[in-house]
């Protein structure tokens, strides 16, 4: 397997990771207008474009943080494809509405498709996990939150006023319950597990 070369536009990913306002502003100045135009030409308005763009940037940020995202293609193509896919998914949800889609090939395929696909999948997984986490009971949610915030199971048990052994066991079962909810969701099969 050959190592893919990291593109110089990795600076945008690193900037997002560092919460660098300059970089975020640069992304808006350079790459956002094209996305807004696309959404406006395809049954959307500026307000909807704003939401899609923000959600996309948060997904990129999360993937960078969690999976050490390395950009192997220009940011422009990658970002545009992501926003476009997200917008098309949004349109699909409102099936009853008549939509017009202007498909045109705006980029030659420089690896952006593949990377954008990975990011989309990552974002969908995160959405599913979040959705199912919220379905857990309060006791499980509290225990899981405490576990990953506090780090020491002894302290977690103390803070929740339960025994250490029970806290340990319950934590595994709560995470198990979450995996079950995820597995049982109809969305799960689309996620390449």
């Amino acid at each position: 397997m050959s190592e893919k070369k990291i593109h110089e536009d990795q600076k945008y990913i690193d900037g997002l990771l560092n919460n660098n306002s300059f970089i975020i502003e640069a992304i808006y100045q350079k790459f956002v207008p094209k996305v807004v135009n696309y959404i406006k030409q395809n049954s959307g308005d500026a307000e909807q474009a704003k939401d899609i763009i923000q959600e996309t940037i948060v997904t990129i940020y999360n993937q960078a943080k969690e999976k050490d995202l390395k950009l192997t293609c220009p940011f422009d193509a990658y970002f545009f494809l992501l926003c476009k896919r997200k917008w098309l998914n949004e349109l699909k949800k409102k099936k009853n509405k008549e939509v017009t889609i202007n498909e045109e090939l705006l980029f030659k395929d420089d690896g952006a498709q593949e990377l954008a696909y990975e990011t989309l999948l990552f974002g969908e997984k995160q959405d599913l996990f979040n959705e199912m986490f919220n379905k857990l009971g309060k006791a499980c949610k509290d225990l899981i939150k405490a576990t990953f915030k506090i780090n020491s199971m002894e302290e977690v048990a103390k803070s929740l006023n339960i025994s250490y052994a029970y806290a340990r066991k319950k934590k595994s079962l709560c995470i198990g319950q979450l995996t079950k909810l995820v597995q049982e969701s109809p969305k799960f099969n689309q996620l390449n597990y």
């Binding site: 943080k65 969690e66 995160q126 996990f129 899981i144 915030k149 995470i175 979450l178």
Partner: peptide, 10 residues
């Protein structure tokens, strides 16, 4: 799931 929780919460 564990990795997701760890990252999201931490």
């Amino acid at each position: 799931t564990t990795i997701f929780l760890q990252n999201t919460i931490r």
